[in-house]
Write a protein that binds this DNA or RNA. Structure first.
Lengths: 372, 372
DNA sequence: GTGCGTTGTGCAATCGTTAGCATGGATTCT
DNA sequence: AGAATCCATGCTAACGATTGCACAACGCAC
C-alpha cells in the first residue's frame, strides 16, 4: 500500500496544457537566475539579507520577464486575500454610486481590492454569501442593502469582520454612519426658524435604520420646539416614491397642505420637488423642501437642494480602517464600534431662509458657506 | 548541504498562529471521516466514482462543519480564478451605475464574481493594472473609462481577454455596444419628421468613440436628408456640461437658436433641458430635446425624455459571454469581435412629435409603444 | 590555528485543492 | 477455479508563494 522511498518524479500534467501558461513565476525566475526560489522571493520583497548585486540581477530579470506575483498563492500562505467584499444598496440612488467610487479609491490606497458581491435592491442571495467565504474575503463593507441576519450570522461564525456604512449595526459588525438624528435636527431648526409651522416628512423605506433615525430626529426636534407634529408621507428610496408623495401633498387643500417638507433622502426630495412643481406649486415659494445625503445631482439646477451633506469620503475611510484594524487584530477580537460622523448643512435654494422671506434664486452654490 | 533522507516533519508555524484558523478544510474533513483528502474532494464535487454512502457521510460532515471550499486554492490548480475585472467609467452618469448592477447580477448567474478595479473619471493607475494581473483575473470588462493603451498592451501580453462595453474596440479585445450611428439616425429622422429644421448636437467627451459615433451618425443622417448641418455645442459627460451647453443655446438670439437639440447622452440632455427651462424656454414648446442611453431618471418627470434606449442587459450579457468563451478557448485564441446591438426608441414628452404640433404632456410612459 | 559571529543562500515544509496513477478487494468471464 | 475486469479509495505530485532553519563561507579576535 505504501510504496517505499522516493517514487520517480514526473509531471502530473503536460507542460503545454498547464493553465496560465507563459507567465513567469518565482520558480522560473529562480531557474533563469541560477538561484533558489526563496532567494527570488526575498529579493523581490526587499529582504535585507539579500546581497545588493543578487537583488539587482533578480529585479532586472523580473522586470524583463514581466513578472507579476500571484496573489492567490500568496494569500494561501499569508492567510489574507487582500479582498474586501462590497455589498451595495439600490444604485438607483446616486448616493450609492458615489459611495462606491470612494470605496474603490480608498481601498486601493490601502492596498485592498473590492470584490463586488451585490448591487441593487432585494436581499442577498445565499450564493453571494457563499462567495464571500469562498474567496476568503478579509472583511466586508455593507451599505444599506438588506443583509439578512442569516448572512450576518455566517460571517460571524467564520469571523469575517463586517462594517456597515449608512446603516445601524447588527449584533455582529461595526457601523459607520452620519449622525442622522443630529442632522435631522439641524434641518428642523432651519425650517422652524424660517417661519414654517406646518411641516411634513417624506419617509424612507421603513426597514432601514437610517430612514427611521432621520424621521425620528426631525419629529423630536419639532416637538421639543413646541411645534405641531409633522405629517408623515410614506416614501421609499427612489425618485418615483418621492414623486408619488409629492403628488399626494400637492393634492391636499391649501389650508391643510404643509408649507415645508423634509424628505429623508435627496433622491426623494428631488421627486417631491418635481411633483410639486408639476402641480403648479412653487418651490420654495409655496413649499420649502429639504433633503439629506448631499448627492451631487440634487445640488444642481433645477433643484439647488438645501440638504445635509453626509461626509462620504470620511465615512468610507473610517469604515475601511475599522475593517482593517479588525483584520489586523485577528478575527473577532476587534471591539465592535458604532461611529457617528457629523454632516454639514448645505444651503441651496429649495427652501425659505430664516432672514429673508424668499431666498435669492441665483446664488451660485460655491458662494454659499456650509454651516457647521 | 543536502541532508540525506527524510527530515523530521514538524510544523513550520504554530497551529495557534495559523491564519484562517478554525475553518474546516478538505484535510480536516478527511481526518474526521477517516478517508483520504482526495476522496473528500471527489465526494463534494459529485464524482461518480464515490460510493453513495461515503458521499452521504462526507456531505453531512461538511454541512455540519460549515465547510466552504477555498476558491483561491482551487484557482491555483485549475488555473482559473472565476474573477472578472470590472473597470467602470464616470459613475456620475447613472448609466454606469445601471450597467454595474446588471453586470453583478449576470456575472453571478454565470458563476463569476467581479473584482472592482476602477470607478470614476480619470485614467487607470498602473497599480490597478497590476492588480488585474496579480489576482489572475480570467478576463476584464471595460466601460467607457480611459483604459490606457499601455494597460491594454499589458493585458494582451498576459493574454487576459478584454471586452469593452459601450466603447470601440482596441487592437486587443472585443467590444459590445449599441449601434450608435443607427440610433442617432433614428433620432435625426424623428426630429426632421416633426418639422424641425434648425438642429443642434450637444457632443460628449471628444475622446470617446461612443460620443463621436452618435454625433457623426446624426449629422450624416441630416445631411442625407438634405438638411442644414447641425450646430455643434461642446458637451461632456455630466449634467453640468449639458447645463452649460443649454445656457449657451438659450443665450442665442431667437432667430439663430436651434429648435431641436440632440444631446449624445441622457444625462447631458437633462442638463440641457434644465438650462433651457431656467432661461424661460419651453421644452418641447420652444425647443425639442432628445437624448440617448435610456437611463431611468431621465424617463421620469420633469424630463420625460425622448431617447434611444440602449439594450443594457443584452449588452452586458453578450459582453460576459464573449469574455467567457474567450476564456474557454484559451487565451488569445478567441476571435475578437465587435458586436452591435440595436437600441429602441422611447417616446417621451421632451420633443415635438411628427403628427401633432405639440405632444400631449400627460402621456403615461408605459402607454407609449417603443418603436422598432 | 581554533573558535565565533555575520552574512548570504538553499532546503524543505506549508497553505488547500485537484487529478493522475496505483492498489486492493469484489465481481464476472471463460 | 483462475484470470480479467471493475469499482472505490488512497497516495502523491503538483499549483506559486512564503518562511524557519540549516549551513557554507568569510572575517575577525584570541
Amino acid at each position: 500500500m505504501d510504496q517505499a522511498a522516493a517514487p520517480p518524479r514526473r509531471p502530473a500534467r503536460s507542460a503545454a496544457a498547464r493553465p496560465g501558461s507563459g507567465r513567469a513565476t518565482i520558480a522560473s525566475l529562480a531557474q533563469r537566475a541560477g538561484v533558489a526560489a526563496s532567494t527570488v522571493s526575498r529579493a523581490l520583497r526587499d529582504d535585507a539579507r539579500i546581497s545588493p548585486e543578487v537583488r539587482a540581477r533578480i529585479t532586472a530579470l523580473a522586470q524583463e520577464a514581466g513578472y507579476t506575483p500571484n496573489i492567490l498563492a500568496r494569500s494561501m500562505v499569508l492567510g489574507r486575500s487582500g479582498l474586501i467584499g462590497l455589498v451595495l444598496g439600490p444604485v438607483e440612488n446616486p448616493f450609492y454610486a458615489e459611495l462606491m467610487q470612494q470605496a474603490v479609491r480608498l481601498a486601493a490606497a490601502r492596498g485592498c481590492r473590492l470584490l463586488l458581491l451585490h448591487a441593487g435592491p432585494g436581499p442577498i442571495e445565499d450564493a453571494t454569501t457563499e462567495a464571500l467565504l469562498q474567496y476568503r474575503v478579509d472583511g466586508c463593507l455593507v451599505t444599506s442593502a438588506e443583509l439578512s441576519s442569516k448572512a450576518a450570522a455566517i460571517c460571524a461564525a467564520n469571523s469575517v469582520p463586517l462594517v456597515m456604512i449608512n446603516r445601524v449595526a447588527r449584533e455582529h459588525g461595526s457601523a459607520v454612519s452620519c449622525d442622522n438624528r443630529a442632522g435631522a435636527e439641524v434641518l428642523a431648526e432651519l425650517l422652524l426658524q424660517a417661519g414654517h409651522r406646518r411641516l411634513a416628512v417624506v419617509t424612507g423605506n421603513a426597514a432601514t435604520s437610517t430612514g427611521r433615525e432621520r424621521t425620528e430626529g426631525f419629529c423630536q426636534s419639532v416637538a421639543a420646539a413646541g411645534g405641531e407634529a409633522p405629517a408623515l408621507f410614506t416614501g421609499g428610496a427612489s425618485h418615483a416614491a418621492g414623486f408619488a408623495a409629492g403628488q399626494r401633498i400637492a393634492a391636499l387643500p391649501a389650508a391643510e397642505r404643509p408649507d415645508a417638507v423634509f424628505a429623508v433622502a435627496d433622491i426623494l426630495a428631488m421627486g417631491v420637488i418635481d411633483a410639486l412643481r408639476e402641480a403648479g406649486l412653487k418651490v420654495p415659494g409655496d413649499v420649502s423642501v429639504v433633503g439629506m445625503d448631499g448627492i451631487s445631482l440634487a445640488q444642481r439646477p433645477p433643484y439647488r437642494l438645501t440638504t445635509l451633506v453626509q461626509p462620504l469620503e470620511a465615512m468610507v475611510a473610517r469604515g475601511l480602517d475599522l475593517l482593517l484594524t479588525g483584520i489586523e487584530h485577528g478575527a473577532g477580537a476587534a471591539p465592535q464600534e458604532r461611529v457617528l460622523l457629523r454632516g454639514t448643512l448645505r444651503l441651496g435654494a429649495s427652501c425659505r431662509l430664516p432672514g429673508s422671506p424668499l431666498p435669492p434664486s441665483g446664488i451660485p452654490d460655491a458662494a454659499l458657506p456650509a454651516a457647521e
